[in-house]
Amino acid sequence: MVSGAVSPLPLLEHRLIFVTGKGGVGRTTVARALGLIAARAGQRVIIAELTPASQAPDSRAGGIAEVKLAPGLFTITIDPQAAMEEYLRVKAGALGSALAASRIFGALAMATPGMRELLAIGKVWELAQVQRIRERAAPYDVVIVDAPATGHGVAALRTPRTFAEIARVGPIARQASTIAATIADPEFTAVVGVAQPEELPVSETLSLARALEKDHLRLAYVITNMCYPERFSEAEIARLESARQDAGTLTDAPLRAAISEGRRAAAQRPYLERLRAAFGERLVTLPYLFSAEPDIRSLADRLGTQL
């Protein structure tokens, strides 16, 4: 640990943690909760968003500034264009800066398939180095990557290797191989899947695990978010159903809501079983939050006790 802090969890001993999962399952929330756990334990941590969480104009400031949210807790939104400019400046000095300033070169680089992903992953890798390449930049204990949705997330993880293969020799190939080796190092990098107990998120998580396996990567944890609480037994649901027969105006809607919640809890059980069969103790569950906005603190508390 560069900060000297003791890691609060085995997961947070990794310098680089990718958080991925199907859209809508709460990937960003989980990444932020993990960041909060690390920062509370005194680690210096940064949450890197590969794609901004919102496209609203105010959040599209761009750039690659490391923004401090709280003591020890930082965030960065990686704009591939800015990452490229930094890379060229560091790697090729004045010539690099001239290239970076060229609009045609910029358009070309941004249009080259996979280049945006490579630049973004390259920046993530740079953040995780003890010896930062960026001028006068302090190192982090942990870099948590809020990675793109599953399909694109796997593609992003694979990009460095792909580039190493296409370019074969030369600086891009060398750089890409170094990054690929870092991602493949289980001591350095962990991949966390986020799921939800529904059909698509579960089948995507299972195929994510298979895709990663082909690359010799393993999901450190599968965090299953938004699990409905088991509030009512089957016998109780039956009682509620019969009570609905002669329910009054005050009781009908609450009874329906309870029966409906019982059905949802029942529907999620087989999915949780599938995940448990596949991931065993690596499966972690988080409850459905009945709040207007996700409560990161309470999720961090619950995650901290389970990981």
Partner: peptide, 29 residues
């Protein structure tokens, strides 16, 4: 190429820089 001329620098060093950064094989592929 116009691209290089627009940068306003000599062509040869820029091609050199480009190759240095990307690798010759990628360019030829």
């Amino acid at each position: 190429g116009v691209g290089l001329r627009m940068v306003g620098l000599g062509v040869a060093p820029l091609v050199g820089a480009l190759k240095r950064i990307t690798g010759v094989d990628l360019i030829s592929d």
